[in-house]
Write a protein that binds this DNA or RNA. Structure first.
Lengths: 187, 187
DNA sequence: AAATCTATAGACCGGTCGGTCTAGTGTGGT
DNA sequence: ACCACACTAGACCGACCGGTCTATAGATTT
């Protein structure tokens, strides 16, 4: 038998990847099970509240994973413009490597379920809240005046999210760089 | 019998509304049929390529509808800041009136299907292209220098799209206003 | 070694999915 | 009057949906 918690994590990671690529309603539990190699019984043992719980935890996991990666990328940058460029590069690379299959790991599920499942909506809200917090810290570190940090972090997150979506639609990452370059000019 | 084309349009309008609220995979054809009062045979008579065609045309319709409304709102504005504020107000009102059910009529379907259906992806791309074109014209009219118009229109569209998504997730329109206010400061 | 608990395993369920098919109905042309 | 044609109407299909259930295997405790 597999070690404690191993199956749970494998299922969760598979689900996170599929939800990111195909969205909530576009991803079937059977597919998650097939790709993770787990039987149905295990799924409902580890996630007794079913698909909703699986999606909530997937969003939380993705949010944390990407949030950590972003923090690393951003904190390594010497100044604001470099940091924003690194941010854009990070997402652009993910887009290209997945043939535009993987944009924001939260956005698709967020839009699909915001009005349908309070649980998932809250998980998405939390994930974005964490990113916003990280952005504020980074902006402060780059010398942005304290009273501008809040709105600016919001603007950066919004435009990055929009750019990520447009890039998938256009199958072209240039919009991401175009946006981050202009954001850099604001600092 | 209903007049020529009447059923087709009723189905299309119902579909557009449902796709906007629930996304592509979250909307069933049976629901579209039930709400529009059409039988299944009519659907496949008017849309022989099925759900994909219905979604493509819905996106095109919504894109045109909202695009026209935006053009009206924006062209009525005396200057850039007023125009951007009007843009934000338009979307914020839609969000509030629908209890955060209706954000961008294209975004959810776009994210869900960009990697899955080339047809729908192209329709979304066209819709956003039209909006971008309208934005460029408006910016030019507000005296933005010609070489800045392209990138700036992209930034406005991106950040507005991101803000619309975040607003639904946060169930709060303030992010929309926060973003349009900062964009206005860029002109 | 017996008992207990965690987790796996997958058959099974009613319901809904997108899509097809055949029959019929109202309308305009001739 | 008749015929085409455009459109309506909904029964029907296999596939798949999320979810439940019972049985069992492996590890852990006593």
């Amino acid at each position: 038998m597999a070690p404690r918690g191993e199956t749970r994590e494998r299922v969760l990671r598979t689900a996170a990847e599929l939800f990111q690529r195909q969205g909530y309603h576009g991803t079937g539990l059977n597919q998650v099970l097939a790709e993770s190699g787990a039987p149905k019984g295990s799924l409902y043992f580890h996630f007794p509240e079913g698909k909703e719980q699986l999606a909530s935890e997937s969003v939380a996991l993705s949010g944390r994973t990407v949030g950590d990666a972003l923090a690393e990328v951003v904190l390594a940058a010497p100044d604001g413009p470099a940091g924003l460029a690194a941010l854009g590069d990070y997402f652009a690379r993910n887009l290209l490597e997945s043939d535009f299959g993987k944009g924001c790991p939260v956005a698709t599920v967020a839009l699909e379920t915001a009005a349908e499942s309070e649980t998932i909506r809250a998980a998405c809200d939390t994930a974005y809240g964490e990113w916003l917090g990280g952005l504020r810290v980074a902006l402060l570190g780059w010398g942005v005046p304290e009273e501008r940090v809040g709105p600016l972090a919001t603007l950066v997150l919004s435009s990055l999210q929009g750019a990520l979506m447009l890039a998938r639609v256009q199958r072209d990452v240039s919009v991401v760089h175009q946006v981050t370059r202009q954001l850099a000019g604001l600092l």
